[in-house]
Structures are given as structure tokens and as C-alpha cells.
Amino acid sequence: MSEKYDILSEVIHERKSVRKFDSSYNISKEEIASMLTEAIEAPSSSNLQPWRFIIIQDQETKKKVKQIAYNQEQTETCSAIIAVIGDTEMYHNIDKIYQSNFEAGNIDETNMERLIQNAKGLYPSAPADVRLNITTFDAGLISMQLMLIAKAKGYDTVCMGGFNKKQFAEAFDLSDRYVPIVLIALGKAAVPAHDTTRMPLEEIATFI
């Protein structure tokens, strides 16, 4: 096995969901931005990147989120809460994204125009529930990538779907276009996370 695989495997196995954070530990805005910059290399449907982030470090705001998140302790003691928001109208960025890829030399003009035409023929007319499913799936990809990056840098996380999404959207004045997907608490563990088991592969995978 390659050294890269060994490193990745170690990070995967070390990452655990932490719910007790060291409330005195601070992660700088710059380092969080650095982690997010790497995380947004995650794939997305047609590269439309339907994710947005609200990074909450203010202590009073974290207390407000704690109430929205059914009083989960980690929302108040972590260094930051990263709210992953889904853009269900990701099609508004079609021209911008493919033009950027053309200017970067990743695609030629013919392919740019073809991709723009295909995306505009698909996403704006897709039912709202289909676009929400796409957005949720893509948000899951970047959330996992972010948590692995955090662990590789020596930090801990827990991903929370258990919060009142309607209240969160209202508290942060989100328009209907944007949907809260998950909250990721980021910080340093105050106590080690406990291990969990996984179902045997032979019970969940079929090779044909």
C-alpha cells in the first residue's frame, strides 16, 4: 500500500464524533478558512457547488444555536459551529462556474457552451424536491471532506442533523432558496470520543 493511503486510512479511523469539547480552545478564522478552502475541492453535481457556510464563533450566537439544536452541549463548547447551507437554486451560478473553468483553461469554448446549455436544460426545470435531494447529497460530500481535513489537522468534529431547521433559517434570515443541511461542531476534544462498531461488509455489500 502507498504512503498516501496509509495516511488517509489513519485519518479515517481516528475521526470520531466528539460531543465534549475544550471550551477554552480557539481555532482562528484564518485556519477555519484554510480548511474550508480545501474542503470545497469536493465534487458536486455538474460542478454547481450548491453549498454555502455560516461560521459561528461568537459565544452569544452559539448559545442561540444551542437552543435551536435542542440544547446539545457541543454547540456551545466547540471552537466554531460550521453551518452547511444548501443552495437549491444552484442553477443561477451556471454561467459563472463554467466561464471560470473556461478562463482557467480547463475546458474549451465549445465544451463550455455545451455544458452551460445542458445544465440550463436540466436544473431550472427540475422539481424542487429533486434539486433539494441533489443539494443535500452534495452537502454531505463536502461535510465529510471537511471533517476529515479537520482531523488531519488535529481537530475534532461532530456532524449534527438534529436541529430545528426552520428556526435556524429564521434566526439567520435565510431566503427560501437556502436550506440548512447540517451543523458541524469544530474544536478540540475535552475527552476522547468512544469507539463505535460497524456492520460486517458481507451483510451490506453484494459483489456481482
Rank of each mutant, 00 (worst) to 15 (best):
E60P: 00
Y98L: 11
A42F: 01
T37A: 14
G140Y: 00
S125L: 12
D156M: 09
T88M: 10
Q74Y: 04
E30F: 08
K96L: 08
I204M: 11
A69M: 06
A169K: 09
E3A: 12
L8I: 12
A69C: 06
G162W: 06
G86C: 02
D87Y: 08
I184R: 03
D129I: 13
F168T: 06
I27L: 11
S28A: 05
R15S: 02
S143W: 01
T88A: 02
K63I: 05
A126M: 14
I54H: 12
P127M: 03
L115A: 13
K62R: 06
R177S: 13
I94M: 04
E103S: 09
A80L: 07
R114P: 01
T77H: 02
G121D: 08
Y98S: 08
M147A: 01
G86Q: 00
N93C: 10
A185P: 00
N118K: 15
F172E: 13
Q99E: 15
K120R: 14
Y91M: 10
I81V: 15
N93M: 08
A126H: 08
A104N: 11
S45N: 06
H194T: 15
E60D: 15
K64G: 00
T61N: 09
N47D: 13
N93R: 08
I208A: 12
T77V: 08
V191E: 15
K66S: 08
P124W: 11
V182H: 00
S100I: 02
C159A: 15
D176G: 14
I134F: 13
Y98A: 07
Y155R: 12
L36S: 05
D138Q: 08
V18L: 06
N101L: 15
S9G: 07
V182T: 11
A128K: 13
A128P: 15
K4S: 14
S46Q: 10
G121P: 01
T61M: 13
K63P: 13
F102N: 07
I184F: 00
V11W: 00
A169N: 07
I32K: 05
A205S: 13
E14P: 14
K96Y: 12
D58R: 04
I7F: 10
C78W: 00
G121L: 07
Q59H: 11
I54D: 09
V179F: 07
S44V: 01
A205C: 14
I116D: 07
S175F: 05
P50Q: 02
I85P: 04
S28M: 05
R114M: 13
M1A: 10
P180T: 08
S34K: 14
Q117D: 14
I97Q: 03
A69L: 04
F137E: 10
I107Y: 02
A126G: 01
A205Q: 10
I56T: 04
F172L: 15
A152W: 05
Q49N: 10
V182D: 05
P192G: 06
T37H: 11
A119E: 08
I81T: 05
E113K: 13
Q67R: 11
M112A: 07
I54P: 12
S46P: 00
A42H: 00
D6W: 05
E73M: 11
I32Y: 04
Q74A: 04
M90S: 02
T136Y: 11
T136A: 12
E30L: 09
A139M: 05
A119W: 01
N93L: 05
T110D: 11
N47W: 12
W51R: 03
